[in-house]
Write a protein that binds this DNA or RNA. Structure first.
Length: 819
RNA sequence: GCGAAAGUGGCGGAAUUGGUAGACGCGCUGGAUUUAGGAUCCAGUGGGGCAACCCGUGGGGGUUCGAGUCCCCCCUUUCGCACCA
């Protein structure tokens, strides 16, 4: 080998190797029972038009890890596809007067090319596109499975509606305290509509079981809060008219302190409970509450409002007759839409009672303490202690109060222990065109009829007016909705709403298994081999949307007998976000967007890949730094010029010590890189490689080139580089005389002996402060280390004549003399 | 208000999980080479001090021979939830 002359020219190298990998079908993933499988999955992109640097950040480090897994002997599948139904296509269609599909598929074509420029090990034969009829045929089929298994239903309910997107939204798609539309940030409003729902709440408890998989604690906490399980009781009060009025409470032990009840303005009993004298006031209040948006209603700091119905109910534990009020701080969507109010011990009820001058009664008091007089209370009396003034249960200690109160009401037949969830069923109907049609037909005589399997897919019509009106464009189509009833000779109408696109993305990992399979959503043999997903990567923003939906979907399909296992993704890791150079979120209007195409053109894919792995902790993200990438570019240039030929003007031969050190540094780097890949710590993978290159440069200058140690270092270096900078690695690998692709090589084993230090720097401390450093053999004995430390001049000086009281020796590391 | 995470040089970040704080890279400062540099190479770079040394991981306590790392209190930032009965 001689020193290299040419400059590093990534463009030529990268296109050459991408072509050769393609020709060899190198990344085709096929079932191989002789190898352990590894299903690597990155959340699929929406085909918005251009690949963003964020897409690279989401896809490239996981690609490096997938390649590393492959070199470690795993049969790796890393598929990619497009989540291609959705609103932006319709908005673009309206703007440019083109069909949403045309826009979508043009974008997909463009993005495929951009994705290829990453040099990722995607198996393109497994590509799945959710707006293809061959894909959504099975989305519809899966919908029918849920219907069949009683996990889908149609209901008229107040639903969240985005006036700008002109469609309903799932609860999860209304973001933040302002309840903004997830897509366009417009405040959502309530509408009363008949819509399709999935019973996510059916799996609320199972969705809280996080014991079966390795996901970040952060995501689990978010899901835990989102599901929001509360334990308590349902208690039934009786109204004057004899109707049951059931409330949910987490504090059945305070039942004796209930001095009024509150029902939500939308509660079905409002009409019946209202007395003639109160009718005008109630109607005015309900009208007002309906007009107010959820934002205004749910603001916690807003002063309580409400109105008396004129009606009363009987408290089942003590037979007391208490007034029923209407107030918008009680939500129809949580619990039963009605509460018993215990103003003494609940801040909200207290505030309400004081405002409307309703009696307050204390029923909990700390052990051995006299409770204050109610008229002296300035806020709710939130205390722990035994029950007081509570009939037969008076005196029940705090730790027994809940079970005893529940047992008491159960015995009386007026209630039972109950659990309430914050999670709501998933509203999947959307009044838009560019989505998967819901395969349902409405017949005047048969009612709701699922479309038979053999008539799938129900495809979207192309001749359509897609201007949003708040109604589904499919509804306004002249002929599309007209059909024959599948079960009787009558004419019938198709469902004209389409499905939430989260439905399409809840099962895409299954379509990748066999995207061309036409006998079912996936090929069972592929499923049995590849599932579950071993490494799932994507942004944290999906914690309470996609990641809950896909878990729900898997469980629903399991119970429908379609899939096996309890969880679809065994391991999840989240990447952070790349901000603009100004530390703001990247956006076109901010003018701080970094375009990966430009970077690839200027630096080459390998440099962009390496920099994305290096510049920040992957799970944290960071602001972009356009200067920083030059450092990574320099590194790869130096790799290219050093390996394998070395440097000019070096001695013929190196000392044995130099060669020994070269081997040591090489194997130490291998040790670190291996561990860092395992733990998704991509930044230190690259920094370890940079560090090793610095050592190799020193060794080359000291004459190491030509030795077997040098050759080994070069070989290991290129193998370690392969997942990070795959094109350059293959180029160097072949220059070094190898025939096969570097990506088909095995990940090297660490030679522990080579990595071991034979001399270590012994840190010598006096009272915990570093005072000296002594070179000693790595296997120095405790006694010898202590002796050497005590003999040190620096130690003697800092002991200042005192005798050491204690000497702590950490073998091979440090001696601390306490004096 | 509740919950979670994070605070380390001018900047991004290392620290093998209780044992040399600041690896690696950016930036900066000198120098070499060059007609030129947003090129390349060499040296330096936490703060203070001529030095011996002293100080230093958001702040304050504590445990320990020894704390960026463990415990308690506080502050700041980011994210999530928020009248959930």
């Amino acid at each position: 080998m001689t020193k290299r002359d040419g400059e590093y020219a990534p463009a030529a190298i990268e296109s050459k190797w991408q072509e050769r990998w393609n020709e060899a079908d190198l990344f085709r993933a096929e079932i191989d029972h002789d190898k352990p499988k590894h299903y690597a999955l990155t959340m699929l992109p929406y085909p918005s038009g251009d690949l963003h640097i964020g897409h690279w950040y989401a896809m490239v480090p996981p690609d490096a890890r997938a390649r590393w897994m492959s070199m470690r002997g795993y049969n790796v599948m890393y598929p990619m596809g497009f989540d291609s139904f959705g609103l932006p296509a319709e908005n673009a269609a309206i703007k440019n007067n083109t069909h949403p599909g045309k826009w979508t598929y043009a974008n997909i074509e463009r993005m495929r090319g951009q994705l290829r420029s990453m040099g990722n090990m995607f198996d393109w034969k497994r590509e799945a596109v959710s707006s293809d009829p061959e894909y959504y045929r099975w989305t519809q089929w899966l919908f029918l499975k849920l219907v069949e298994n009683d996990l889908a239903y149609r209901k008229r309910a107040p639903v969240d509606f985005c006036p700008k997107c002109n469609t309903t939204l799932a609860r999860e798609q209304c973001i933040g305290d302002d309840r903004l539309c997830e897509r366009c940030s417009t405040p959502v409003v309530k509408r009363d509509l008949t819509q399709w729902f999935f019973k996510t709440t059916h799996y609320a408890d199972e969705l809280l079981d996080f014991g079966k998989f390795d996901w970040p604690q952060r995501v689990l906490t978010l899901q835990d809060h989102w599901i929001g399980r509360s334990k308590g009781a349902e208690v039934t009060f009786t109204t004057e008219a004899g109707d049951d009025l059931t409330v949910f409470t987490t504090r059945p032990d305070t039942l004796w302190g209930a001095t009024f009840m509150v029902i939500a303005p939308e509660h079905p009993l409002v009409e019946k409970l209202t007395s003639d004298e109160q009718r005008d006031a109630v109607e005015a209040y309900v009208a007002e509450a309906t007009r107010a948006t959820d934002i205004q209603r749910e603001a916690a700091d807003r002063e309580k409002t409400g109105v008396f119905t004129g009606g009363h109910a009987i408290n089942p534990v003590n037979g007391e007759k208490i007034p029923i009020w209407i107030a918008d701080y009680v939500l129809m969507t949580y619990g039963t839409g009605a509460i018993m109010a215990v103003p003494a011990h609940d801040t909200r009820d207290f505030e309400f009672a004081r405002k409307f001058d309703i009696p307050i009664r204390i029923v909990i008091a700390p052990e051995g303490e006299e409770p204050p007089a109610v008229e002296d209370l300035t806020e709710a009396y939130v205390v722990k202690g035994p029950m007081v003034d509570s009939g037969e249960l008076t005196g029940t200690p705090a730790d027994q109060a809940l079970p005893k109160a529940i047992a008491y009401i159960e015995e009386k037949g007026s209630g039972k222990g109950a659990i309430s969830y914050r999670l709501r069923d998933w509203l999947i109907s959307r009044q838009r065109y560019w989505g998967c049609p819901i395969p349902i037909v409405y017949c005047d005589s048969c009612g709701i009829v699922p479309v038979p399997e053999d008539q799938l897919p129900i495809t979207l019509p192309d001749d359509i007016e897609w201007k949003p009106t708040g109604e589904s464009p499919l509804k306004l189509h002249e002929t599309w909705k007209k059909t024959d009833c599948p079960t009787c000779p009558m004419e019938a109408e198709r469902e004209t709403d389409t499905m939430d696109t989260f439905m399409c993305s809840s099962w895409y990992h299954l379509r990748y298994l066999s995207p061309e399979h036409d006998q079912g959503p996936f090929d069972q043999e592929e499923y049995d081999y590849w599932m579950p997903v071993d490494s799932y990567t994507g942004g944290i923003e999906h914690a309470t949307m996609h990641l809950i939906y896909t878990r729900f979907f898997h469980k629903a399909l399991r119970d429908a007998g379609v899939v096996k296992g309890d969880e679809p993704m065994s391991q999840l890791r989240n990447q952070g976000m790349i901000l603009g150079e100004d530390s703001e979120k990247m956006s076109k209007s901010q003018g701080n967007v970094i375009a990966p195409d430009d970077l690839v053109q200027r630096y080459g894919s390998d440099t962009v890949r390496s920099f994305l792995m290096f510049f920040a902790r992957w799970d944290m993200g960071a602001p972009w730094n356009s200067k920083g990438i030059d450092g990574t570019a320099r590194w790869l240039k130096r790799v290219y010029s050093l390996i394998p030929g070395g440097v000019d003007d070096a001695p013929e031969q190196a000392d044995a010590a130099v060669l020994r050190q070269l081997r040591r540094k090489t194997h130490q780097a291998l040790q670190r890189v291996t561990r860092n890949f395992e733990q998704y710590q991509f930044n230190t993978v690259v920094s370890s490689l940079m560090e090793l290159l610095n050592h190799m440069t020193d060794a080359a200058r000291a004459g190491a080139v030509g030795s077997s140690e040098w050759d080994e270092s070069c070989r290991l270096y290129v193998l370690m580089l392969a997942p990070v900078a795959p094109h350059l690695a293959d180029e160097l690998w072949h220059e070094m005389g190898n025939e096969d692709f570097v990506h088909r090589q095995s990940w090297p084993e660490v030679d522990a002996e080579a990595a071991a230090e034979d001399e270590v720097t012994l840190v010598v401390q006096v009272n915990g402060k570093v005072r000296d450093k002594i070179q000693v053999p790595a296997d120095v004995t405790k006694e010898k280390a202590e002796e050497l430390a005590l003999a040190s001049d620096a130690v003697k000086k800092h002991l200042d004549g005192r005798d050491p009281r204690k000497v702590i020796v950490v073998p091979g590391k440090l001696v601390n003399v306490v004096g």
